[in-house]
Design a protein around this nucleic acid. Structure first.
Length: 119
DNA sequence: CCCTGATTCGC
DNA sequence: GCGAATCAGG
């Protein structure tokens, strides 16, 4: 599969929209995130270390973080530098991917063996 | 542990 | 120029 102008255009657009490489890759199809990143980098694009941590949608205050902003207390509530992550949180998740997995780390319990143990 | 993008390496 | 592998950060 070669990079056609259409695909490159989609790549640049999606990338510019803040889509992650894996998302773009999956959306385009037949490409891996590496291919997308490689092409993006070759095109002169970048985004630096995790551009998604930014806020594509501006207008964010502590009052408006009840939208899809990651509400993760950083530092100490009594400290002056206490702030929220503010990263785009996942659907249904009060936290972003970074903190969501941290919050749900110890969450894994399956009763698959139940049917085996069931007397 | 998972993910992200960046850079490097070989084809 | 292409993508995968590898590197580095969160």
């Amino acid at each position: 599969m070669s990079w056609t102008d259409e695909r490159i255009d989609r790549l640049r657009q999606l990338w510019g929209q803040g889509m992650s490489a894996s998302e773009i890759a999956e959306l385009l199809g037949n490409v891996t995130r590496n291919a997308v990143i490689g092409k993006a980098h070759r095109l002169g694009l970048s985004g630096r270390p995790s551009p998604i941590k930014k806020k594509p949608t501006r207008g964010a205050t502590i009052l408006s973080l009840n939208e899809r902003m990651c509400k993760w207390p950083v530092g100490d509530p009594k400290h002056a530098d206490f702030h929220f992550c503010g990263c785009p949180s996942l659907p249904g998740m009060p936290y972003c991917r970074e903190h969501a997995q941290m919050a749900y780390q110890p969450a894994k319990k399956r009763d698959d063996e139940r049917k085996l143990v069931m007397a």
